[in-house]
Design a protein around this nucleic acid. Structure first.
Length: 273
DNA sequence: CCAACCCCCTGAACGC
DNA sequence: TGCGTTCAGGGGGTTG
């Protein structure tokens, strides 16, 4: 379940290995993974184009190509990018492969096939939704005032608000729990019940927490490949997510699991008010 | 405007 | 052993 930190790591690892290379051929064995255009045209349009660089916005990735073309993709739950030598065996559930100059391949595997790719021609409007995202968590415009303006009158759970990609981009089920633990606020609190200093706590911890997890998930391209593109994830560093029933790292009390907005959520009933 | 549901999809965990 | 059920959840969608 990659969120901003994991997607950023995938971007950094991948970009260094594909920038400057040319796409020589494309294999797409699962046409439904390609959201736009149809798979036939996708496969036909790419060979011969070179890769200029990569961008991340929220949980989306964009591969910038020569002549103004671009690939936008979303890993969703189980999607994974891997740059591998041609002779290395493919992971199971590999659906798209870009063969690159220099003997490497950019491979996309996705067990649950929820991930999607979009190809846009020069001047063509974005269809992925990436351009409609709210600011990054590191953006100085994400202040307590911004969050209050956006959610201060909402009865939705504050956790649900933090996962709203149109408000702040890149926070999902894991890091919304982590942020609210750091801010000492219960994730099921209605957003309209938060006091200004509580919004300040959330806005205050957001950039530092997200940067902490970006730094913790950093990995070398060699280790990333050796771990099949999944082993770098932040599991050992998480303070609440996935730790229901285990002791809170601050107070030692048992962490509690609760479904909030349909998402499994974990918090400390003592530390978080 | 929003909560609650559906859908996509596979595999791990679990009950019988 | 093996089969069926439930759960995991990002994001888009529909319904009430």
């Amino acid at each position: 379940m990659p969120e901003l930190p994991e997607v950023e790591t995938a971007k950094r690892v991948t970009e260094g290995q594909i920038a400057g290379r040319t796409i020589t051929a494309v294999r797409a064995s699962r046409p439904d993974v390609i959201a736009h255009p149809d798979a036939e045209e996708f496969v036909r349009a790419l060979p011969g184009r070179s890769i200029c660089g990569m961008q991340r916005r929220g949980k989306f990735l964009r591969i910038l190509l020569s002549d103004g073309w671009a690939i936008t993709l979303h890993l969703r739950m189980t999607g994974c990018l891997l740059v591998a030598p041609r002779e290395r065996e493919e992971l199971r559930h590999t659906h798209i492969v870009l063969e690159l100059s220099g003997g490497m391949e950019l491979r996309f595997s996705d067990m649950r096939r929820l991930g999607r790719w979009w190809l846009t021609a020069p001047g063509e409007a974005d269809m992925s939704g990436m351009d409609a995202l709210g600011p990054e968590p590191f953006d100085p415009c994400v202040t307590a005032e911004y969050l209050m303006e956006r959610f201060g009158r909402s009865r939705r759970a504050v956790k649900t608000c933090l996962m709203d990609q149109s408000a702040v981009a890149g926070i999902g089920n894991i890091y919304s729990d982590e942020l609210l633990f750091a801010a000492r606020i219960r994730p099921d609190r209605p957003a309209c019940s938060l006091a200004p200093d509580e919004w300040r706590a959330i806005a205050g911890v957001m950039p530092g927490e997200m940067q902490f997890f970006v730094d913790k998930s950093a990995i070398s391209p060699e280790d990333y490949l050796a771990g099949d593109g999944v082993d770098y994830r932040n599991t050992p560093f998480l303070r609440v997510y996935g730790r229901a029933g285990q002791p809170c790292r601050v107070c030692g009390g048992a962490l509690v699991r609760k479904v909030i907005g349909g998402r499994g959520s974990v918090h400390c009933p003592v530390c978080q008010q």
